[in-house]
Amino acid sequence: MTTQPVSANAPSTGRRKRSGCIPGCFITLLVLIVLLIAAWFVAIRPTLHTIASDQLDKAMTSAVNQVPSHAGDQIPSGGLTLPVDETIITNLISVNLAPSNPVKHPVTHITSSGMRLEFQLYGYSCAISALPYADNGQLKVKNVTVDGIIGLVMSSDEITALLNRHLADAQQRLQHPTTGVQLKDHEVDITLG
């Protein structure tokens, strides 16, 4: 019986181990995830934040500009309570949204515990909730919460600052202090001094 020498180039009959491929794939996947997260924080989120902030700012500026200058001249010296219902707020927002605006279908809800604005942003449900109050003659909001995809690009603190800035602009146009805010179901009563 003669044995044939085994050549170094001869294929082996055993199975090759593929364990060397798994760590390489895992590392590649991990690098891709890290790059996507970095892209979100460095480029994508700041861009989306700017777009969202600009759109909200334009809509609120337009709404404030609809308040007539010196409209407060018609307020009696003893003050005036303005009842503002959900429909008025919803319509005011809707009128100031361009057809191309990514914000669609705003609906306002008012209860004795706060106000909530629900809307769709690029087809995704979102909401902003807040509690209006009077502070040293200014109408302000606090306890702002942000729900939905808008929360990925704007924080509650940023929305609070934006809302309070525009409420101060509206107050300046009225030229009368806000002395009280009372929330009811479907309505908020704002008392001007």
Rank of each mutant, 00 (worst) to 15 (best):
L29E: 02
L29Q: 04
L29K: 01
L30D: 06
V31F: 09
L32Y: 01
L32G: 00
I33C: 01
I33A: 10
I33K: 01
I33N: 02
V34K: 02
L35E: 03
L36W: 01
I37V: 15
I37T: 12
I37P: 02
A38C: 03
A38V: 09
A38E: 04
A38H: 02
A39D: 10
W40K: 00
W40Q: 00
F41K: 14
A43Q: 03
A43F: 14
A43D: 01
A43Y: 08
I44C: 02
I44E: 00
R45C: 05
R45P: 04
R45F: 01
P46C: 08
P46I: 07
P46L: 01
P46A: 03
T47W: 15
T47K: 13
T47P: 06
L48W: 05
L48M: 14
L48H: 06
L48K: 13
H49E: 08
H49I: 12
T50R: 12
T50Q: 11
T50V: 10
I51D: 11
I51A: 15
I51N: 11
I51E: 12
S53K: 13
S53V: 08
S53T: 13
D54A: 14
D54R: 14
Q55I: 09
Q55L: 14
L56E: 02
L56V: 09
D57S: 15
D57I: 01
K58L: 13
K58R: 15
K58N: 15
A59Q: 06
A59H: 09
M60P: 07
M60H: 12
M60D: 06
M60Y: 12
T61C: 00
A63R: 09
V64P: 08
V64W: 07
N65K: 13
N65W: 07
P68I: 06
S69K: 13
S69D: 12
H70V: 06
H70P: 00
H70R: 11
A71Y: 08
A71V: 15
G72H: 02
G72E: 05
G72R: 02
D73A: 09
D73Q: 12
D73Y: 05
D73F: 06
D73N: 13
Q74S: 13
Q74L: 07
Q74D: 11
I75Q: 09
P76N: 10
P76Q: 12
P76T: 09
P76D: 12
S77M: 08
S77P: 07
G78M: 12
G78Q: 15
G79S: 02
L80M: 15
L80A: 13
L82H: 08
L82Q: 11
P83R: 04
V84D: 00
V84I: 15
V84W: 03
D85H: 11
D85K: 03
E86V: 03
E86K: 10
E86H: 03
I88W: 10
I88M: 14
I88K: 14
I89A: 11
I89D: 08
I89N: 06
T90V: 02
T90I: 01
N91I: 06
L92T: 15
